[in-house]
Design a protein around this nucleic acid. Structure first.
Length: 856
RNA sequence: GGCCUCGUGGUGGAAUUGGUAGACACAGCAGACUUAAAAUCUGCGGCUCGAUUAGAGCGUGACGGUUCGAGUCCGUCCGAGGCCACCA
């Protein structure tokens, strides 16, 4: 029996229970043949930056609630943890701190693992790995060779986004406002030979299957759909009036074939082969192409929206009228990477085309008008709405939709074009010119070309002796590493010195967790048993990239026989960020522990005199110094308090604001629960509904709490579950036992409370459970089931409205018929006042809900 | 520019999905205990009017609509935020 006169001391209890869970091996997942239904809970694994932050605490607290809850409900739970350990920060640290990326990374992992363990998470640590372990990335290399054989990989030259500071290629999605996502340097366009995964082959499937992901947020599915960007249109030829070399026609793609009669000119991308060829003999065009390449695609440039064109002097024949010649421009707003890199322009119905036409004085012909505006014509604003076709020959009078269908059918019948589906999604360029990543297992031979590294030679490991003293890729600078004999011809050859994009590493780690097989990336029986992940939890910032790549990669693994599902994550939850107020004085940002709050609410610097400006509530970040360190919080209040605060108040998908008052409130709640154990009690885990009124009322509240908390946890409504638990604790604290039955019911209520609290505050729940004399660990106890029979009462209280406003309440028998309810409602004193002297027009009785009297 | 989400007390937020608006918590006020403070316990708390009570009116960004009944559904507008962005 603990001394309950003293405050609850988390430091004492938390370490004890963490050890007990480990000794009892509570959280190891059962084998695939375990009789219990499986449940795979996964939080997005962390990057080992060095220390955990509050965002991790929130993320892993949520996942842990789900894992513990599902275990208690009788599931065989898999809840693993690992490290997304490759990436540039390790190289930056190596440069700045003169250490080795591996040493830095593994040191960080050790530190963060210790921090996570202090949170008391129910993790199966036996499955832990880091993506920088050769045991992991070697399998990744083997799978890459499988993908290569299966035709899922391409190597091709392409224009890439080049970060001149980091000296590496960036994916489109790593370019933000024309700048590198890490360096912030303006991105340049560069032609490089790159490895690609053919994700665009799966565009249609990745899009269609979004409909099957019922337990994903609508928002994320929409973002992915937009990213994949499916459009339907017509691809057709515009004959050039004179051929240029081999090129006799322009292939164009349009989603608006209905507006063909409004054509004004054709435009090709500066990177279009025709433009490239013409530029060879045209210095002015060459200069124009250079100018376009330098302008880039930054937000500022797009905002400015300046349309630049170069008249090639060529013309193209309109496909519907060979005598109609359209000028061909090179235009900066046409992208080579989408469609065919060539368009026909209809200025009346596309704003970009209109801007261009007005600038270069090209014709504007209106071919769609709004239904009710007979004389409509476009002047300075393109019309993109629905309506009626005009000035379009046989199309006149049709809707644009019907006109599109008619034109496409006509082109297909005449074999001059075809319906074509286009996607915005491009193939995934995975080559990175970095050291700290998974080496691409390819050998480049002048004679044999690209030769896969023989399987027996995998993994291709990173050399340890590297230097970071010059920009670029240390693997390419290394004196010996890249020089090898060609596996095919035996001649001198070189290793591919690029490494994989780190998104490759995180595209299959969830599969690896299902079994750490030595000889294969996955063990098919285990991976097919556990996947898909039942509940995946992480930040919304991964809504597109990571989640889309993982969906594609799973399909690729399916195709190559590594598993047998297509969708890796059946349920997805995206949690909000942890925010904090910001503070600054003349010297810059101040940390929360560098300020003091005085009585009138004013905020001063630590010296007690300098006034401090309280800024916006923003995501915790080093740069704004508005960080609260989880270690400090755990040391002062314990893990349970930190977890409880992260789960209360704010809905989990929304941002939460960290406040000192909030953490203090959670701390007081822990103490309040502890004070409930103020006397010896007989352990009571099961109880029939008591007879006495007071015990019965408490018993009933315990049952409704079990019922609602269960449903809230099922729905990940942690904040609402917390509110119900506050209510139960308040009721237990106020409950004054007056009989043996009362005592027993109170003990029973406390036992149920411990079980309900245990997913969120596992240490306190164990302490309380032991205090009550419960057998074993509450971590192993079964989830309680609500006895709802006690709630079935014969009477119920119905609110009575008059004209929709509540005016009274009546207590009626459940079985009372409408006539009796009406009579009681009409005779209620509060109601009477509002109906006397008025004509009763209607009585609405919603059974069990409400009564509404309509009077006039 | 396109697509989407959200606007409820001093604050974070609840509201059985069209049926008693403001649960629960934080901050606040008053009281009890204490020499005092902290902690704890009790009570109050949307706004306006009503001296107070009883009570009445108003109230979920604004205006309109549907309905017996709207925070919830529809329309227009205002405001905040997110994602994508010259994607033909």
């Amino acid at each position: 029996m603990s001394d309950i006169s003293r405050p609850y001391d988390p430091a004492k209890h938390e370490a004890h229970w963490q050890k007990a869970w480990q000794q009892e091996d509570c959280f190891s997942a059962g084998a695939p043949d375990d009789a219990r239904p499986k449940y795979y809970v996964l939080e997005m694994f962390p990057y080992p930056s060095g220390r955990i932050h509050m965002g991790h605490v929130r993320n892993y607290a949520m996942g842990d609630v789900v894992a513990r809850f599902k275990k208690a409900q009788g599931h065989n739970v898999l809840h693993p943890m690992g490290w997304d350990a490759f990436g540039m920060p390790a190289e930056n640290a190596a440069m700045e701190k003169n250490t080795h990326p591996a040493k830095w990374t593994y040191g960080n992992i050790d530190a963060m693992r210790a921090q996570l363990k202090k949170l008391g998470l129910s993790i199966d640590w036996a499955r832990e790995f880091a993506t920088c372990d050769p045991e992991y990335y070697g399998h990744e290399q083997a799978m890459f060779l499988d993908f290569l054989e299966a035709g899922l990989v391409d190597r091709r030259e392409s224009i890439v986004n080049w970060d001149p500071v980091d000296q590496t290629v960036l994916a489109n999605e790593q370019v933000i406002d024309g700048k590198g996502w890490r360096s912030g340097a303006p991105v340049e366009q560069k032609n490089l030979t790159q490895w690609f995964l053919r994700i665009s082959d799966y565009a249609e499937d990745l899009l269609a299957a979004l409909d099957t992901l019922a337990r994903w947020p609508e928002k994320v599915r929409l973002m992915q759909a937009n990213w994949i960007g499916r459009s339907e249109g017509l691809e057709c030829r515009f004959e050039l009036s004179q051929a240029v070399g081999e090129m006799a026609a322009l292939e164009i793609y349009t989603t608006r074939p209905d507006t063909l009669y409004g054509a004004s000119f054709c435009a090709i991308s500066p990177d279009h082969p025709l433009a490239v060829q013409l530029a060879e003999n045209d210095a002015a065009l060459a200069a124009f192409r250079t100018e376009c390449a330098q302008r880039g695609t930054s937000e500022a440039d797009i905002e400015a929206g300046e349309k630049l064109g170069f008249d090639t002097g060529l013309t193209a024949r309109h496909p519907l009228d060979p005598e109609w010649h359209l000028p061909v421009y090179v235009a900066n707003f046409v992208l080579m990477g989408y469609g065919t890199g060539a368009i026909f322009a209809c200025p009346a119905h596309d704003q970009r085309d209109l801007d261009f036409a007005l600038k270069y004085q090209l014709p504007v012909t209106t071919v769609v008008r709004p239904k009710d505006e007979a004389g409509f014509s476009v002047t300075d604003s393109a019309y993109t709405g629905d309506g009626v076709m005009v000035n379009s020959g046989a199309l006149d009078g049709l809707t644009p939709q019907a006109a599109r269908e008619k034109i496409i059918a006509q082109f297909e019948a005449q074999e001059r074009g075809q319906r074509r589906v286009n996607f915005r999604l491009r193939d995934w360029g995975i080559s990175r010119q970095r050291y700290w990543g998974c080496p691409i297992p390819i050998i480049l031979c002048d004679t044999c070309g690209c030769v896969p590294v023989p399987r027996a030679d995998l993994p291709v490991t990173l050399p340890d002796d590297v230097s970071f003293d010059k920009p670029g890729n240390p693997l390419a600078h290394h004196p010996t590493w890249k020089h090898v004999a060609c596996p095919k011809c035996g001649g001198a050859a070189q290793r591919e010195t690029d490494t994989f994009d780190t998104f490759v590493d995180s595209s299959w780690y969830f599969a690896r967790f299902t079994e750490l097989a030595d000889d294969a990336p996955t063990r098919v029986a285990a991976v097919n048993h556990w996947l898909p992940v039942d509940q995946y939890i992480g930040g919304i910032e991964h809504a597109i990239l990571h989640l889309l790549y993982a969906r594609f990669y799973t399909r690729a693994m399916h195709k190559t026989g590594h598993l047998a599902v297509d969708e890796p994550f059946a349920g997805l939850f995206t949690q909000g960020m942890v925010c904090h107020e910001t503070y600054r004085d003349d010297t810059g940002w101040l940390a929360p522990d560098e300020i003091t709050r005085i009585a009138d609410g004013a905020v001063l610097a630590a010296d007690g005199t300098t006034p401090v400006t309280v800024g916006a509530v923003e995501k915790m970040s080093k740069s704004k110094k508005n960080i609260v360190d989880p270690d400090d919080i755990i040391a002062r209040y314990g893990a349970d308090t930190a977890r409880w605060f992260m789960l209360s108040d704010s809905p989990p998908e929304r941002d939460v604001q960290w406040t000192q008052d909030g953490i203090e409130g959670a701390w007081r709640f822990v103490q309040k629960v502890w004070r409930l154990f103020d006397k010896n009690m007989t352990f009571t885990d099961t109880l029939a509904a008591p007879e006495g009124a007071s015990a019965r009322a408490l018993y009933a509240q315990v049952q409704t709490t079990i019922d609602t908390v269960t449903r809230e946890l099922e729905a990940l409504g942690f904040n609402r579950a917390v509110a119900r638990l506050y209510e139960l604790v308040n009721a237990l604290a106020a409950f004054k036992p007056a009989s043996a039955e009362d005592e027993k019911c109170r003990a029973y209520g406390l036992a149920q409370l411990m079980k309900l609290l245990s997913p969120m505050m596992p240490h306190l729940a164990e302490t309380g459970w032991a205090e009550l004399g419960g057998a074993g660990l509450v971590a192993n106890a079964a989830w309680p089931e609500a006895d709802m029979s006690v709630l079935v009462s014969d009477d119920l209280v119905l609110p009575v409205q008059v004209n929709g406003k509540k005016r009274g309440e009546i207590s009626v028998s459940k079985t009372a018929d409408a006539a009796i309810i009406e009579e009681m409602a009409l005779s209620d004193a509060g109601v009477k006042k509002f109906i006397d002297g008025k004509e009763l027009q209607k009585v609405i009785i919603v059974p069990g809900r409400i009564v509404n009297l309509v009077v006039k």
